[in-house]
Amino acid sequence: MSTPAAQSKSDRVAAFEAVVAAYESALLRYVARIVHDESAAQDVVQDTFIRLLGSWKDRLEPSPRLSGWLYRVAHNRAVDWLRKESRRRLLHRNQAQERRLYVPPDRGPEFALSDAAVRAAEALKGLSLREQQLVILKVYEEKSYREISEITGLSVGNVGYILHHAMKKLARACR
């Protein structure tokens, strides 16, 4: 059996760096698609890794269980951020500077997104947070129902059920 004590301090630092390297991009992608704010996504992922240090009692190494834990914590922190943000917006809704103008992001000259893709991404934002979460995990991140069940705590059957209805809504919105 390997315990945390079996990993010496320098081993643990190296192991942690490896975990960060393995998951940072995927987590940033996932969280940025939930919060739609680059800086908030950075904060959420940073906090997720810091929390991992305090909570993870097993050996630090990439594994399905660790991956599930990271997504779960990142998601919860992203939802916390969204709640705080909507409260803040409500508080400042009369202030003109709060109305941010939408600037289409610069994607580079050769990157063209199809109209259908733009419409689908826009329609996705209109779904419930739970539906968005499952669509992003399944379609964008190509996770299996089993992995999504691990992350969300929903049963596999429930994951499929919610996704089926979410996709129907998206198909209708994209018609």
């Binding site: 960060v20 940072e24 940025a32 259908a116 991404a121 994209c174």
Partner: peptide
């Protein structure tokens, strides 16, 4: 078609950082 549109949208990395910023990495 909806699935294909979403998969196309998934290629869009605008506003999505690839790595933790140097500041966050230091904090971690």
């Amino acid at each position: 078609a909806t699935l294909a549109a979403l998969r196309d949208a998934a290629r869009d990395r605008a506003g999505i950082p690839e790595h933790l910023s140097e500041k966050r990495r230091r904090r971690v």
